[in-house]
């Protein structure tokens, strides 16, 4: 498992909280949504940086009011073909104004990374060995022309608002 961010592999400052573990006072743990919902009162008054892990299919309304409490939200791709987290990411960024780290985890493959980034993800947890190797060898694909606005700032091409380039 390796963490890809801004075109390089970086050290991961975060870890998933273990079953039955008490959250460390210094934070930097990622909590499953159910866990958070049960224990949120225990964090009253705490400023420890926390992460939240959300499974695909969970309506964002369920945790929308707490979004700004989290420094990191992790969305899961159980299989590369399960694209729900693409829409969830855009909603978090564009509708709910989430500004923290948005992390993709699960079946994250090399050819999806740019699409994920355009939907608002900024870190990628890589478990596929080929993807990791290719990222080390040649980096992620970096297309420069798109036919639709994403969650990242991109400039319209000529007068076509739906055709865009990195801005």
């Amino acid at each position: 498992m390796a963490l890809w961010k801004n075109g390089a592999f970086v050290d991961d400052a975060w870890r998933e909280i273990a079953e039955g573990e008490d959250p460390p006072p210094a934070g930097h743990v990622i909590l499953p949504l159910d866990w958070w919902e049960q224990e949120r009162d225990a964090f009253e008054g705490s400023n420890a940086p926390l992460g939240l892990r959300v499974a695909p299919g969970v309506p964002i309304e369920r945790f929308a009011r707490d979004i700004n409490r989290f420094a990191l939200i992790e969305l899961v791709f159980p299989k590369f073909g399960d694209g729900r987290a693409f829409s969830m990411a855009r909603l978090l960024r564009e509708r709910h104004g989430f500004r923290g780290e948005l992390r993709a985890t699960g079946d994250v493959l090399i050819d999806q990374i740019q699409m994920m980034a355009r939907c608002g993800f900024d870190t990628f947890q890589i478990s596929d060995a080929t993807t990791e190797r290719l990222l080390r060898e040649r980096g992620a694909p970096a297309y420069k022309r798109f036919y639709q606005p994403g969650a990242t700032p991109e400039a319209p091409v000529d007068s076509r608002p739906w055709a865009r380039r990195p801005g």
Partner: peptide, 16 residues
């Protein structure tokens, strides 16, 4: 045509 362009390699809608 507009729909064709907009939907081409759509980052959100390629894994429906």
């Amino acid at each position: 045509e507009i729909l064709r362009q907009w939907s081409s390699i759509h980052p959100e809608f390629t894994f429906l």
